[in-house]
Design a protein around this nucleic acid. Structure first.
Lengths: 183, 183, 183, 183
DNA sequence: AATGAATGAGCGTTCATTCAT
DNA sequence: GATGAATGAACGCTCATTCAT
């Protein structure tokens, strides 16, 4: 019966990504249960609190993101890899979720060193890897730090707007990230 | 008593900017009343609906933003004016509110051409003005359009994060907006 | 300034009859003020409580009703006078108010022997007068008492429905009130 | 747990009949919950809207009424059956609810052909059946139509007052409904 | 005396969370 | 383990009533 439970857990997480991706924190737990095709009780058995569910959803999302980024990084040309990943993280469908990632964290009380933070760090590290390779290849300006790059990704990922406008905005930012004239 | 009422209206709007800036649409009307130091009934007397209150808050915010931008634009040097305003709109304390401005507007039903849209247009126009002056002065890349610039401002304004990181991210973006090498 | 006040009081009462006649007890005091063209404060100055206002409205209505009935009673033919008044009380436009008259009276606490009751009694007496004259003239069945007649009037006055249906229902009741075969 | 739910639903409906019978539409949902001994949430789980609850209450009431009437109609003597049912519908304890049945239905918007209307029609039909049998048996005046009879029932059912007075008023009305002298 | 702004209890409704089945 | 009914705090909003002007 362990496998049933595991399967349910996964369906709930998938549904949660849909719902919270669409409505942010305002999405209801009941809607998640409905889309997952399970009872509300089942959701709460796996995730004792809405906040826990939201966090797990974010963790899952960030983990996938990091994996993709890492995979991309393995590939050949450093500058292109950096830029492609940047683009992908910004427009990746589920990126909407990044929104939720920014939500209030006050009073976490549970001493839990926060899994979310850990997952976010993983993403950061993937970005960092790509960034420094790009810089070593002389394809990305040397004075940019992960902090800024990561923030730019998050900011653009949350931006509403026409796909084409977003794309051009990304072009501009990537221009800003290219090596400076004098370099 | 007219003056008392006006004063209260203003206190409510100020409180609303705080609350909705902090919690987005999820902020509660009651919290607004609490922070404004008035009864809940007073809030509803001035703004018959939560949605109306939110809209009024946004309009107020955008109007101030546009005014500031326009004032700045009058000043001398075109490129500097553009860049300073860009920075200011991103970090202006209450900029958080831009978040709310992006919230759902579905089914406005009231034929009202929407004051919010009008106010947003005003801001856009101010940005447009600054942008084209900057371009004419050869200080801003010629192929950038308001759409992208405006989106970049909004995206960065909503970004959470260290002040210094944001500042450096803005530097990068402004570099991306400077005239291209070949130009 | 006494006359101003008196005039206002009357306008409020007239407005109240409209509003409570239309919406029953659910009509709002503010709506009354609006229709009377005065501030809400003025309404409460004259009638310290909504309940008092409602009662005053009912008293006014019942008083007018009694006067009309009495006037009608003076006239010539006894049976016709009885029947005409019966009809009139049932369909009189403001009769709707009778509805309100039936509303909860629990816990009046104010020792006031209740003006409403007094006014209702006046109406009852007018009906009684008409009834006994009709009976003496042999035009109304002898065994009917005011209680029943008065209740029938109130019941029919509150009935919703087509005017013509109400009229025919009244015909039936008046037939029931005509002298019995054997009499 | 299905049975618990059903039981609760019934307790809620019973409580609602009490509350709305006593206060009309002004009765509060919370009071219904209190009298049913359940939480407010439970009421809303079973009836998603106050309006739905009120309608369900009326439907239940009217359905019982129609059943009783029909059962009575099966019995032998036509005139007696008509008169007994008339009496019963007027004085049946929960008849108070008829009041609610007359409440505003404006803008139902839901295309639903309205269950309430359907239930009311059922009652009407039961009355019609009894009426025409009574007329065929020569025990009820031939020119009376369901419309009037139905309205008289509703009017008397809503009348406040002494039981004995109501009874005698019904006698009078039934006299009015007996065959005319000339017939 | 009149005004209308302010108040807050109360209502209908939603939703995270608990618990009997 | 899973289910979904039950709970009640919280929200948006209304309205009788009070009180500064």
């Amino acid at each position: 019966m362990r496998s049933d439970a595991r399967a349910n857990r996964d369906r709930v997480l998938a549904a949660a990504e849909e719902v919270f991706g669409e409505f942010g924190n305002a999405g209801s737990t009941e809607e998640v249960a409905r889309r997952a095709g399970v009872g509300i009780g089942t959701v709460f058995r796996h995730f004792p609190t809405k906040r826990v569910l939201v966090k797990a959803t974010i963790v899952r999302h960030l983990t996938l993101l990091a994996e993709t980024a890492r995979a991309r990084g393995e590939g050949g040309e450093a500058g292109a890899a950096f830029r492609e990943t940047f683009r992908e993280m910004v427009s990746g469908a589920p990126a909407k979720l990044a929104l939720v990632a920014l939500l209030e964290e006050p009073a976490d009380s549970t001493g839990s060193a926060d899994e979310v933070e850990a997952a976010a760090t993983t993403v950061r590290e993937a970005v960092e890897e790509l960034l420094s390779r790009g810089q070593q290849a002389g394809e990305v300006r040397a004075d940019a730090t992960v902090d800024e790059v990561y923030m730019l990704i998050r900011a653009l990922a949350n931006a509403r707007g026409d796909r084409t406008v977003v794309d051009r905005a990304v072009d501009i930012v990537l221009d800003g990230l290219s090596p400076r004239r004098s370099e």
